[in-house]
Design a protein around this nucleic acid. Structure first.
Lengths: 227, 227
DNA sequence: CATCTCAACAAAATCGATTTTTTTACTCAA
DNA sequence: TTGAGTAAAAAAATCGATTTTGTTGAGATG
């Protein structure tokens, strides 16, 4: 049978997991806020068990914190942590990029080109933010997909989600977007020519640029507090 | 009040999480096996809800796999994955080691020395395997603790747990143990003298040695199967 | 006036039972 | 004998209610 990814309806706990995950990344909850479980239950129209299972998975993933006998809270955001996430993300993605360039075959090249094309298409509708976000995530995934290390990709994905929590705090900025998009195009070219050194430098810049934008926003909106 | 870490009794779901996690790492379940939830419930004497929450967290952590509508299973083990885990672990730990050496203060040195002392003490009772295992884990933790990157330490911990699943398959080997222990001592000396290059090389060897032992066992016990 | 106690309240965690889905066992026809 | 279809059994997922724990505030006490 042909691949039909959307064939299986998954259980309620998986659906609420994905929904909550997106809402957390998109910043629909206040950082540091305590989650009122019964309110979530009403809002998302799910039962307690699936909801609690999703919350537990999100806590293990690092998008929630579970406090001993007093429920779940949205992790606070700190400039210091953003720096950690961005720095590590740059290192791990450069590592994966190198391996991806070495191991990538023509099928990989095709997928990168396809993902880049979809990303450019998504750019044509600036009002559909979420579509661009998804295309963007998939482009970066495709670029590193051939690196051969399941665990490295897993950690990178996790860091990407964490990073996005911070990045999404910043308001959309057309100039930055344009610069990032040019870098995407250049990354594709460097991938096809397997120019590892140049691609690493560019990817590092790419992340550094996003980082500095998010940093500016994070610093102004919620100055790092002690205690 | 003074620090008393064991003061808070945590909820049942946390206790069963820790217990199950240890049992998974120690290889008390067959790789690939499907977990019978009601059997677990009886065996560990817990209710369904805490158990399911623990299973969900373990799945998010990577020590279990959740299959759509058919429960949880213990991940299969593959030589290929062991290589991935060990290789990545070496890279991430060397990265952390460098940062730890650069940022480590005298308090860090004290903790490393203390952890190493406990490790040597634990060596005196070869029959108490679990005590040595815990001291070993804590020594490696202490060595990297000052690296300053919360997320890097988190990933390393996760990889360590994954690696241990494989390492524990191999029967105890006094000769190997002795070699590893000498390396622990050398690592302490290099930490005190902040010899980054030598320490990186040694840590890489350290992991490589464990890797090759685990590899030999994994290869003979369960030849990598396709499909 | 500050602090302590304890009851009433709110929320989290857990339990037992129900619903849904998958797996197994069996029948019958090709 | 094999294979599709189907009903019973088993297991997973979910629900509603109960139990446990943390929080709040009124009144007592120093």
């Amino acid at each position: 049978m042909t691949a039909s990814p959307s064939a299986s309806r998954d259980m309620a706990s998986s659906r609420i997991f994905e929904t909550l995950k997106q809402d957390l990344i998109r910043g629909r909850f206040v950082a540091g806020e305590k989650l009122a479980i019964s309110a979530l239950k009403d809002h998302y129209q799910v039962g307690l068990s699936p909801l609690r299972e999703a919350l537990n998975r999100l806590a293990a993933y690092g998008l929630l914190e579970q406090v001993n006998q007093r429920g779940f809270r949205v992790p606070a955001m700190h400039l210091e942590e953003l720096d950690d996430i961005a720095g590590l993300r740059a290192q791990l993605e450069c590592m994966a990029l190198t391996q991806a360039f070495q191991a990538g075959d023509s099928e990989w090249e095709s997928q990168v080109l396809a993902a880049h094309h979809r990303l450019r298409r998504a750019d044509e509708h600036p009002e559909r933010v979420e579509e661009w976000e998804q295309a963007h995530l998939r482009f970066h995934r495709a670029l590193l997909a051939s690196c051969g290390s399941h665990w490295l990709l897993r950690f990178i994905e996790q860091l990407h989600d964490q990073f996005d929590r911070y990045r999404r705090l910043a308001p959309p900025n057309p100039a930055v977007r344009k610069a990032l998009d040019r870098q995407h195009g250049e990354l594709v070219e460097l991938a096809l020519s397997r120019d590892i050194a140049a691609a690493r430098a560019l990817l590092d810049d790419h992340i550094r640029l996003s980082h500095s934008v998010a940093r500016g926003c994070c610093a102004s909106s919620a100055p790092d507090e002690g205690t």
